[in-house]
């Protein structure tokens, strides 16, 4: 019987940046539930099979050749949980012995919960683009059921699986008040990553200050991106400061 797998549109064999603390491979799936105006991978939005897919055999071969190095596989999109065949792929990766992380936008909570329940994922990240109100709809460029996002957040906060919330901070992105509004939404979360994106390197100092502020709501806030190393030390301090809210 032929395997039914989601279309794999890209593979990054080795990455030091996609799963901090691990050397990982990254599998990119096509098809997204959102239409963010600032999407960094617009070629992955479409669902059409005609866009082609990388045969899983070659993915398998690449992962096998790097088995001594790879400490996990990151599956991202698009929106991976929007693919009905995703469990099949996650199962194959788990069978190979690789820890798996799925980077999601949080719009498919049921599928996410099912994958977690089936122990097909070791870590889930949810990208929060804006506070969960009208601002989110604008940022996502699509009509999104916000309740799905709340449900995804609740599932992660209440569950045992490792997770991470992520927010890209860029010029024209969420303002300071927006960032703090998101922080309140994920109050008590284990980890939130603020990522300087879109060349907003000059704002790193501000980002660090934001991280410190957000530390009142979230146990660990990390800052990534340009100048991240300097900020990382700060983030360690934030981690300590932030524990009073947990």
């Amino acid at each position: 019987m032929e395997l039914k797998l989601p279309p794999i549109r890209g593979l990054l064999e080795t990455s030091l940046t996609h799963w901090p603390g691990r050397l990982s491979s990254v599998v990119f799936l096509g098809g997204c539930t959102l239409r963010c105006p600032t999407c960094p991978v617009p070629h992955l939005i479409g669902w059409g099979r005609e866009q082609g897919a990388i045969p899983f055999d070659s993915i398998l071969d690449a992962l096998y050749r790097r088995r001594r190095w790879i400490e996990g596989v990151v599956v991202k999109g698009g929106e991976p949980f929007a693919h009905p065949d995703l469990p099949e792929l996650l199962g194959l990766l788990a069978d190979l012995g690789f820890p798996v992380r799925v980077d999601s936008n949080g719009t498919r909570p049921a599928e996410m919960e099912a994958a977690i329940a089936a122990q097909l994922v070791d870590c889930v990240t949810v990208d929060l683009k804006a506070p969960l109100d009208g601002r989110y709809l604008r940022a996502a460029g699509a009509d999104v059921a916000l309740r799905d996002l709340f449900r995804s957040i609740e599932a992660l906060l209440a569950g045992d699986v490792d997770y991470e919330f992520r927010t890209a901070v860029r010029a024209g992105g969420p303002a300071e008040a927006d960032v703090l509004a998101i922080a309140r939404t994920i109050r008590g979360a284990r980890r939130w990553v603020l990522r300087a994106a879109g060349g907003r390197d000059s704002g790193v100092t501000g980002l660090t200050r934001l991280a410190r502020e957000a530390g009142r709501f979230v146990r660990e806030v990390r800052v990534e991106g340009r100048g991240m190393i300097g900020s990382f030390r700060q983030a360690v301090a934030v981690e300590k400061d932030g524990r009073n809210d947990s």
């Binding site: 030091l16 901090p20 603390g21 050397l23 190095w69 300087a196 390197d201 990534e224 340009r226």
Partner: peptide, 17 residues
């Protein structure tokens, strides 16, 4: 490159490997 940068933890993992 200056960006994106790996975290020190990732580099440490690389050293170990």
């Amino acid at each position: 490159p200056r960006s994106p940068r790996p975290s020190p933890e990732s580099l440490l993992a690389l050293l170990r490997k």
